[in-house]
Amino acid sequence: MSEPRKESHRSLIFGLLTIVAGSFAFGYALVPLYEVFCEITGFGGRTNTEAVVVEEAPDPTREIRVEFMTTVNSYAPFEFVADRDSMTVNPGKMYFATFTATNMTESDKVAHAVPSVAPPAAAENFVKIECFCFNSQEFLASEEKAMPLQFIVDPDIPEYVDTITLGYTFYDTTSMASNN
């Protein structure tokens, strides 16, 4: 094999291996990219999981119904309910809601509520200012806990949305927490 050919093999292989490494990294980069993508588009009912600040003028002319839906994973020994099933809100105004969770066991537990908003078009416009879902919640044995939610519906919410469903799935994350 001639020297120049060997040389051009080498540079080409190097380039191709760079693509391979890049694609592998891209696979992982898709994770944060997907988070961003979801929060922008509301894909997958993704809603913010960290506190944000909203400065929008309230729109008293529009009313949106916000429904709360609670699901407890069958492996989580908890009771978890919204104190009210739904409320009617004006976009741009801040509201409070409370959820109550009860540890049904005689041991300490850690739980996490995973939020999701439907329809997807509303997800980006449902902004949580303060939420128990931002952190894991620790429960003593048999403890009952009232957990606050503070939210604003962004006035930019599309015209064709009149009902927003905020769903929480309650998971027992005691084993995950103890691993860390």
């Binding site: 191709l16 693509i19 391979v20 490494a21 890049g22 694609s23 592998f24 990294a25 891209f26 696979g27 992982y28 898709l30 994770v31 995950m176 691993n179 860390n180």
Partner: peptide, 21 residues
């Protein structure tokens, strides 16, 4: 070359989800 590494990444994530927390 462009997509097989992406699959490798995806299944590696499955593996770490299962065994490495």
């Amino acid at each position: 070359i462009a997509v097989m590494p992406v699959l490798a990444g995806a299944v590696t994530m499955l593996l770490t989800d299962q065994f490495f927390g």
